[in-house]
Amino acid sequence: MENNLDRFWVSFKQWYLYELPQNNLIKENFIGYDEHDDAKPYLEINFNHYYKLNFGVEYDGILEKDEKITVKSLKMLMELTYSEFIKDRYAFTVDVNKRLAKFNIPLKLRNGVLISVGHKSSNQIEHIYNYEQLERKINYSEELIISDELLDKKTALDYITDSLQYIVSINDGDGIKMKNQEIALLVGGTRESKLYTVIHNELDEINKIINEYFDVRHNEYLNKAKQKREVLNDKDFIEYLYNRIYSLLFLLRIKCNKDQSNEI
């Protein structure tokens, strides 16, 4: 069975190619007219030129291929369309977001940028800590978690877990216990604070879940206490655990040691 993202793409591509040229959203210089079909409008865009111009890469031909869409490809097409081809950006944004919501895709077009809407916050991340070890893994996990495939969801959980471990590791303290205490202090201020207690306990609990309870980051059959690690095959629970870790990670990226980061 096709997952929601695949079904969205079938619908979106049909709308993009056949409806969009006719609804007065596209700039006139990107519209051609079929002389043999009552001057029916169609898209006349050199996608390869604009992909090279904006992204420095060749156009992947996704609109012409019968292939599954990835969030990365969708993001590039959506943001390029908004910035280069659209004259009524508000109407385009409304139409796109209605389609995303219809197929329960946790993405939203906002000010020309396709963003994840799984996490609600007035904050924006303003620091890059380590693109290879953190930001890229987070981005990749956001693509995989909305897949309907169990392996993709487990990989997303693995990547978001690695990201949490990284953000903890760049703070002070010898060993994981001390680092958890130090990073909890960045949120709570003092060890007497309830905020400190909540964050410290949450870090400890997540460590137990991913290292002792389930086969998230380990291939060994038993944990250190010689207890059996449970195979994690419940996709709904994986999504719950992913979002729990994601929310904690989001908070720590705001509160973390910004001396270790680069301003965006």
Rank of each mutant, 00 (worst) to 15 (best):
Y196E: 03
L114G: 14
G175V: 08
K120Q: 15
L248Q: 06
L195I: 03
I167F: 00
L203Q: 01
F250Q: 00
N257E: 15
N130H: 15
E205Y: 04
S193W: 04
M78P: 07
Q260R: 12
F55N: 10
I199E: 01
K27Q: 14
Y82E: 10
I125E: 10
S116L: 14
R253D: 06
I45N: 07
L248H: 01
L185W: 07
R7T: 04
I69C: 04
E192K: 08
N97T: 13
Y140D: 10
N46Q: 09
D158A: 02
L80D: 02
R136T: 01
E126W: 02
Y213R: 10
I62N: 05
F8C: 01
E67H: 01
N3S: 03
R229P: 00
I138P: 05
L53R: 03
W15I: 09
D172C: 05
K52V: 01
E205I: 02
I128T: 04
I26E: 08
V10N: 11
I146H: 09
K235T: 08
I115R: 15
N24G: 00
F250I: 07
K52G: 02
L74Y: 07
Q124D: 15
F103K: 10
K226T: 09
D259A: 11
Y240S: 09
L232D: 05
I209M: 09
E149G: 10
Y51W: 13
L53S: 10
H218N: 15
H127G: 04
N262R: 13
I245V: 08
G112L: 11
K179T: 00
N46P: 08
Q22G: 12
E2G: 09
V216I: 15
S147V: 02
E28Q: 09
N3Q: 02
K179A: 00
G56N: 05
E143L: 07
S141H: 04
Y51Q: 08
R99L: 15
D236F: 04
M178E: 13
Y33I: 06
L185A: 07
E19N: 14
K13E: 15
G112M: 10
L20P: 13
F237A: 05
